Simulated scan of single mutants.
Amino acid sequence: MAVLFLGMNANAARMDMVDVSNNNGYMSTAEYVSMRNEFGVKAVTVKISEGGTYKDPYAASNIANVQAAGMYVNGYHFARYATKAQAIAEADFAGRTAKAAGLPVGAVLATDVESQEANNQSKATNDRNNTAFMKEIQKFGYRADIYTSGSWANNKMTIKGRTGWIAAYPFVVSGKNWYSTNHAWQWSSTAKFRISSGGFDVSQLNSDYYTAGQKSKVKPTNKGAVKANNRKANKHNYKLSNSAKWVKESKTYTLKTAVKLHTSASTSSNAITILPAGTTVKTDRAIIQGGYRWVRQPRFNGYGYLTTGPTSNTLKYVKSGAAHTYYTVKSGDSWWAIAQRNGLSMTTLASQNGKSIYTTIYPGQRLVVR
C-alpha cells in the first residue's frame, strides 16, 4: 500500500480522527458535520464490540450518521483475548457485529489491545494473538490494525513500521510529530467540540490508512474555524509530561475486569491482592507515571495502588460511579419515545430503571437515562 505522510503544524497536533463509543452516547449527524466543518475531522472510528459478547449499542447509529455527514468511518474492537483461540473467536464476533451494524467493506476494524488480559501475557503471546485476530478479521473484508499505548508498543507487543494506531499523552508542544511512522497518533482524550458534550479521543493521521478504500465528501467549509479550533484544542489539551504529580481524585470506580492492587504506583511493585471484576474502589489520589494512569485506594493499613489503563487516562479498566442523568416523564411520553430521544433501546431503558417495557409510566416520574 502506498503510504502518504502528512505535514504538521510545528505548534499543533491535528484533529484528523475522532473515536466514539457507548461512553459518548447518541451522536447526531449534525454533531459529526460540526466536527467536519469546524474542526477539520476527516474520519471517525466507532467502537463495535468488546470481548466475546458485548456489542456497542450505538455502533449502528454512529456508522450511519458518520456516513451521512460525508466522513470516513472505521471500527474498533476492545480485545479481551488471552489465547490464539480466543483471538480468533473475538475476531469472528467483531466481524459479524460490524457487518450487522453496517460498517462498510474496506474500512479498518482495529483491535484495541490494552486490557489487563493482554498485560498479563508475554510479548510473544500478544504478538501471536494479535496476528490471529487480524488475519481472521480480514476474512470479513475489513483492513486490520492495532491500537495500543505508546508505552506498550514494541514492549508488550510488536508494532511494525508503517502500521499501528498509537495513544500517547500528555504531550508537550515541541514541534515534534509523534509516531510519524505509524498510521495514527492519538494525542488527547479530552478534546471538546462545539455542539457535542463531554471529552473525545482525537488522533492525528500520519498516513492515508484510515481514509483509504472508501469514498468521502469531506470538505471542511470553514478553514479559518478549523485552524482556530485546532489551536484552541491544543492549548487546552497539552500538559507538561515532566510535571507528573499526585492530584486529588475522590471518586468511586467499579472494576470491569480483575486488576492487581499494588504496594506502590509501579507495575514492578508487589501485588497486595487481585481485585475481582465488580469490586468497588474508592480513591483519593491519581497520577500518570511509568506509562500508566494510577489511582490510590486508602486502606485500613495504608494505601493500595492500581492502574486504570495506559497513560491515555480514559479509564479503560474501570467505570466511574458518577451520578445518573434523569428524565422526567411528560404527558404523552412512552417507553419508545423516551428511549429514542436518549439513544437507548426500550429494553435497556426499562431494565436500568428496574422495570419492563410493559410497566406503565406516569407524568412526573423520573427515569434514569444515563
Rank of each mutant, 00 (worst) to 15 (best):
D333M: 14
A337W: 02
L344T: 11
K355S: 07
T328V: 11
V329Y: 02
S351K: 15
Q352Y: 01
K330V: 00
N353M: 02
M346Q: 08
D333V: 14
W335H: 14
K355V: 04
T325Q: 13
W336C: 09
S356H: 07
S331V: 04
I338M: 11
G332V: 03
Y327E: 07
A323Q: 13
K319M: 05
Y317C: 00
A350H: 06
G354I: 00
Y327H: 10
T314K: 04
A350V: 04
A322V: 15
A350C: 02
H324L: 14
Y317E: 09
M346C: 00
L344N: 09
T348Y: 10
S331H: 04
K355G: 05
T347V: 04
K316C: 05
I338K: 08
L349W: 02
S351H: 13
S320C: 14
L344K: 15
T314D: 13
R341P: 04
Y317H: 11
Q352A: 01
A350I: 06
S345N: 02
Q340S: 14
G343M: 06
W335P: 15
T348D: 07
D333G: 13
G332S: 10
V318A: 02
S345K: 02
T328I: 10
T314W: 09
Q340E: 12
A323W: 10
G354V: 05
I338W: 08
W336E: 14
S334N: 04
S334E: 05
S331P: 04
N342F: 14
G343N: 06
V329S: 05
Y327F: 10
Y326E: 09
V318R: 01
G354L: 00
M346K: 02
G332I: 01
S345L: 03
S351N: 14
M346G: 01
Y327G: 07
Y317F: 13
Q352L: 04
W336V: 11
L349M: 03
Y326M: 12
T328W: 06
S331N: 06
T325H: 14
L344M: 15
Y326W: 11
S334I: 03
W336S: 15
T328K: 12
T347A: 04
K355N: 05
S320V: 12
G354P: 01
K316T: 08
M346V: 06
R341L: 13
A350Y: 04
L349T: 01
I338S: 09
